[in-house]
């Protein structure tokens, strides 16, 4: 029998707020929480760079190098831990769908191409000088794969009940139920 996790008393019926959900996610699994947080940051910054680039121009340098670059490195570490956690957990394998597995395949390809793009950048070229040289011959298509695969993932993930639809549903619920809660308080 597993030992009880310390779960704080919740109110019934439950309240849906971003704080409650964040608390719950952190309690359940920190790795899980970090994975979601970092993935959201990477996806949003990536989309901003590609879609709003012509308008935002040079100000994106910081976003690209810090929020998409260094966060990306953190994400890779977290993602590896996350995947190992899933692989070792029977319950998570039970509740994750096939479409989630497809998502993970997408993430792995995105990570690989992302590393290939970033290998020549400032800190890594000094730390791992061999890396950039080793993967440069296959470099011609990396950006195309990195960018187009993100959009393909957006399309697939939205049409099958997968990561992005899950994200949209969460966002909608948080916004919607907070509004509802205010209404009931007024009443």
């Amino acid at each position: 029998m597993t030992e009880d996790k310390e779960v704080p008393t919740k109110k019934y019926p439950p309240e849906f707020t971003i704080t409650n959900i964040t608390k719950g996610m952190v309690r359940t699994s920190r790795v899980d929480f970090l994975f979601h947080l970092l993935m959201a940051i990477l996806l949003i910054t990536g989309l901003v760079i590609d879609l709003l680039g012509p308008w935002l121009g040079g100000s994106l340098l910081v976003i690209r190098s810090v929020a998409h670059g260094y966060v990306g490195v953190l994400f890779i570490i977290v993602f590896i831990v996350y995947i190992l956690r899933i692989a070792s957990s029977k319950k998570m394998k039970m509740v994750l769908t096939q479409t989630n597995t497809v998502d993970f395949a997408f993430y792995i390809i995105l990570i690989v191409t992302g590393v290939m793009v970033a290998a020549a950048n400032a800190p890594w070229i000094d730390i791992l000088p061999g890396l950039a040289a080793a993967i440069s011959p296959i470099g011609a298509y990396t950006q195309a794969i990195h960018v187009s695969l993100t959009y393909i993932w957006v399309l697939i993930s939205l049409l099958t009940p997968s990561g992005l639809l899950h994200g949209f549903a969460c966002t909608y619920l948080i916004v919607h139920f907070r509004r509802n809660k205010n209404k009931s308080e007024k009443r």
């Binding site: 590609d50 879609l51 011609a140 298509y141 950006q143 195309a144 960018v147 187009s148 993100t150 959009y151 393909i152 957006v154 399309l155 939205l158 049409l159």
Partner: peptide
Amino acid sequence: ATSVLRHSKWLLIPAALG
């Protein structure tokens, strides 16, 4: 490769339609 890089963002339209 470059035209894919340039134009893949239009996939957002079918995604939005879906």
